[in-house]
């Protein structure tokens, strides 16, 4: 078992967890959080794929992708939260 395999498991797990929550929950804030967890899971599998266990280095390009993803996600989260505040907590009533 290698390091990247552990993180592959964790990333896939986070992705699945987030997708399950998205499909079963109606609370707006919780859904936004699930989307954040989903993004984290994706970043994790991405970085784990770029990780070279032999040299202990990670490919810089997926690192840049993950960084970009983080910034994009905080922007969209802020927009989603602003919208959620305007319509009140539940998006369906």
């Amino acid at each position: 078992m290698t390091t990247d395999l552990v993180y592959h498991v964790a990333g896939a797990g986070l992705t699945g967890l987030a997708l399950w929550r998205l499909a079963t929950c109606r609370d707006a804030l919780r859904r936004i959080m699930a989307l954040n967890v989903l993004a984290i899971g994706i970043a994790m599998v991405l970085l784990a794929s770029g990780f070279d266990a032999a040299t202990g280095r990670t490919d810089p390009v997926p690192q840049a992708f993950a960084l970009t993803g983080i910034v994009v996600l905080v922007s969209v989260t802020a927009a989603l939260l602003a919208l959620a505040e305007r319509i009140g907590g539940r998006s369906n009533d």
Partner: peptide, 15 residues
Amino acid sequence: RAAFDYLSAGLAGSL
């Protein structure tokens, strides 16, 4: 409300 649903669906799509 439509915008919120749009954005969350759209974000799920882009993810």
